[in-house]
Design a binder for these strands. Structure first.
Lengths: 212, 212
DNA sequence: TAGATTGTTAATCGATTAACAATC
DNA sequence: TAGATTGTTAATCGATTAACAATC
């Protein structure tokens, strides 16, 4: 019993590299090239050519000896694998500066992501931004239910994070992308991914001091 | 020849878990507990107890049989390992909504990060935000030189990303945290970390569909 | 056909887990 | 002392690399 539906059986490490391949391949596509070899991808991305071929083989079968891989086909295959074809509704909770910046962000669509609305406790923030409505927190359960929202972006201050995250799970949200540095203690089954800008930046900086 | 200065020899996987440990331990500390066992950390964070002990052993020696680990000491040791004691100057390039939100973010300090200034091509954006100055792009090299800035946060639109990233490296920046989805082709030795909100969110969503 | 490049099988490497000894 | 918990050594597992066969 190894196989599951939807492309499981793919090594975790391979799956995690897919977004980076996609980003690179789109740049190649833009530059006009129709084919890439595993060697050139490897070179540009700092990987080994064998690793690249093996990774590609998991999601695509458009590699041909002598020619390499069709860039277009590869992009389609990876997007399919990553599920960027499915449409997913999400909400933003916290309509401060960061929350509003996210509301105005135009890049979600091409990943099948649709921001339905934002929510905030403060009446001063109610209204709209980036063409998306900002509702009071009280409406969160109703909106999530109606739009079948299971995913939320959390952009409230540290002190409010735990309480608000609990409200989100109560509203039926099962996955949270949190920009708050606070550790969230939530029921098992709720997925939390921390997007801590300071941590990312600090990690990058220490990478710098290591590399010399 | 395995040893290097500054705690090298630590497995990569271990190092990558450190920020998550820190986040969790700070929450424990706030709750008032003085000691934690590897078992309780493992339970809360979804790891195995042996893994936790081994990880902690790489950066700390404050574990004691019967008592567990001193939360305070552990936090200090991990912060030391991660280099949050060093002070590092950074700049923000692109003063749109996201750039300004980052300028106003107060969480960088505790990681030893100091945002010196932001830069933008558009004269309309020049001024200040979050108490930090916003300068025209032309001043980037000068400011980076004076403040010894090696790290930059890139928050310009996709079309401008490559050009601006080149300006940044020309100004002496050696590590870039990019919020643009564009692939950046830069000289070897320049570290790029992509912080693609849409990708993070999409990955989280597909994690959701996998977990059931 | 010859040459370039993919795809696969076997070997190596690193990380995790299991078993258990050390210690407060 | 007995019991709980750490720290370490050996075994397993997964991911990467090396070698080479398959194929356009």
């Amino acid at each position: 019993m190894e196989e599951q539906s939807g492309g499981a059986g793919i090594p975790k490490a391979t799956a995690l590299r897919m977004p980076a391949y996609l980003r690179y391949l789109k740049a190649v596509s833009l530059s006009g090239a129709e084919y890439v070899s595993s060697a050139s991808v490897a070179q540009s991305m700092g990987l080994s050519a064998v690793a690249v071929r093996k990774d590609f083989a998991f999601v695509s079968s458009h590699g041909r000896p002598r020619n390499g891989f069709s860039v277009r086909a590869l992009i389609e295959d990876i997007e399919g694998f990553l599920g960027y074809r499915r449409r997913t509704n999400v909400v933003v909770v916290g309509a401060g500066k960061l929350g509003r910046a996210i509301l105005s962000y135009e890049g979600f669509e091409r990943y099948g992501l649709n921001v339905v609305a934002a929510f905030d406790v403060s009446p001063a923030q109610i209204g709209a931004a980036g063409g998306k409505p900002i509702y009071p927190m009280a409406r969160l359960p109703e909106v999530c239910k109606r739009a079948s929202v299971q995913t939320g972006i959390l952009t409230v201050p540290r002190e409010a994070a735990q309480r608000v995250a609990e409200e989100m799970t109560a509203a039926g949200i099962r996955a949270i992308l949190s920009f708050s540095p606070a550790y969230l203690k939530l029921p098992k089954g709720v997925l939390v991914k921390y997007e801590d800008l300071a941590v990312s930046l600090a990690t990058l900086c220490s990478g710098l001091s290591l590399s010399e």
